[in-house]
Structures are given as structure tokens and as C-alpha cells.
Simulated scan of single mutants.
Amino acid sequence: MAKILTITNQKGGVGKTTTAVNLAASLAATRKRVLMIDLDPQGNATMGSGADKHQLETSVYELLTDQASAEEAILSDLSVKYDLIGANGDLTAAEVELLQLPRREFRLKMALLPVMDRYDFILIDNPPSLNLLTVNALSASHGVIIPMQCEYYALEGISALVGTIDKINQRLNPKLKIEGILRTMFDPRMSLTKDVSDHLVEYFGDKVYRTVIPRNVRLAEAPSHGMPALQYDKNSRGALAYLALAGELIRRTEQELASEDLATEQED
């Protein structure tokens, strides 16, 4: 059964799509079965995965509006090693159409049920805003990965996002939790970076990933070539950082499963 993770932050330019694409590629490199879903009408994660958003025959728009099944929407013949449900500008219309549909907050969750057993991880990339698309992602997910830069404005934004996650947890998805806080575009030479990083660890504790994503030219160049950094330059600092993040995520997931198994045995 797949673990579904939403990658989101209501602040733009913090590395959401970069994280989605590169974490998907890194998990796939460890032989995990991965599906990435692009829920952003800009379609950047789609393009960064080597698919042409303008040529999609079936996208997440059709999936959410019952015009296609997950099986029909999945692209599995890309050069990247993970599967993709892509997005383009059509998705903008879905935000309006979803308002008229039953169980509008759960469209994505219901659509993914038939393919859950095919994957180990399903990653969802989101637009930099809280709308019905993001609510669908959060309602379908087990956890949230929050990429953020270590700057003071980011601290304000993350407190608002935590409040949103709490509300979704209470009203729509009791399983939802913060999976981890990921420090992106990290520059240890800046004192502000260290100060904000220390605040994060103080507040969130072990929710903050030990892995940090550095500022890296190759990481920034890779999307223009339609590929993850691991495919573009596997020895770059950015690619290696996301491989480390994938390892950390896998270890955490295995520890959680072991704890759940132990709790079940104790109950029996």
C-alpha cells in the first residue's frame, strides 16, 4: 500500500516542484515504486519529468472530473524511473468544476484507490496557494513534506500552513500529519540561515529532516532539460542531497511501520 505524501508550501519559490521531481527520482533510484502527481496548473513538475504538458492526452484534470481513471492517466514510459500523472492549464478549470461535484474534497483520494497497491510512494506537487486542489491533496495524503528557505518570512508562512494542516486533520483527514520540514536553498555561510534553522529545530524537533538541500547550479539547470538532477548530473551536490533525503524518508517510514507492527502485537 502506497504512502501518499503532499509536498506543499503556500509561499512560492521555496523548491516544492524541485523537491517533488528530485525526491521521486531518488526514491525510484533506490528501487521504490513511485508515482508523482502534478496538481499545479503550471505543469512544471510534468515538464521537469520529461513530459510535454501541451501534448498530454489525459491529465490530472480528467482524473479529478471523472473523465478518466488513474490507470488511463498514468504515464509510465518516460525516461525518468517513476510514473507520472501530469498537469497543464486545463487544471485551472477543474477548480471551478470541482465546486459542483459531490465529495469535492475527496476526488483525488477516491481516484487513487485502484492503484494504491502498485506503488510504495505517491508524491503530490501542489500550487503555491491553498485552494480546492491543495485540499484534495491533503485529504488524500498520509503526510506533508514542507520545503522552506531559512528566512524569517518563511517562519511566518509555515505557521499558517501548520494551522491549515491541523484543520484538515480535524475535519477531513484524521491520518494527516507533518511528515517533515525540508530546508532548501541552504547556505550555511549566512548567519540568518543558521538562526532560522535553529528556530525550526527548536519548534519542530525531529520533524526537521537532517538532510538539507544546498543552493546548487546543476539542480537549477536540470528542469530546463526536462529531467531530475540525478539524471542530469548524478554527482552534483543537489542530486546527492536528494538521494540522502530519500534514504532518510525510507528509514523513517520503515521505523514507523515497525512501531505500528509492535503496537498491534501488544494489543493482540
Rank of each mutant, 00 (worst) to 15 (best):
A68N: 13
P102L: 00
L56S: 08
S76V: 00
N88F: 07
D77A: 02
Y119S: 10
I85Y: 02
E57N: 13
A93N: 15
D90W: 02
D90Y: 03
A94P: 15
L112P: 07
Y82C: 05
E72M: 08
A73W: 07
A111D: 10
D83I: 09
Y119L: 06
D120E: 02
E97F: 05
S59W: 01
M116T: 12
S76R: 11
V80Y: 00
R118F: 00
L113R: 14
L78E: 03
G89L: 13
A93G: 15
D117Y: 02
S79W: 00
E62I: 02
A70C: 09
Y61L: 01
A111F: 05
A73F: 05
K81Q: 14
A87S: 11
M110I: 10
T92A: 12
G86P: 12
Q100M: 09
D66H: 15
A94R: 04
K81E: 12
S79Q: 13
A94I: 05
R107I: 04
L101N: 04
L64I: 08
N88V: 14
L101H: 06
L78S: 07
L112E: 05
P114M: 01
A111K: 01
L101E: 08
Q100C: 02
L75D: 05
R103W: 00
Y82Q: 01
L112Y: 06
M110Y: 06
V80A: 03
E105R: 06
L99Y: 04
D90M: 05
Q100E: 11
R107A: 07
Q55E: 12
D90A: 13
K109Y: 02
N88L: 10
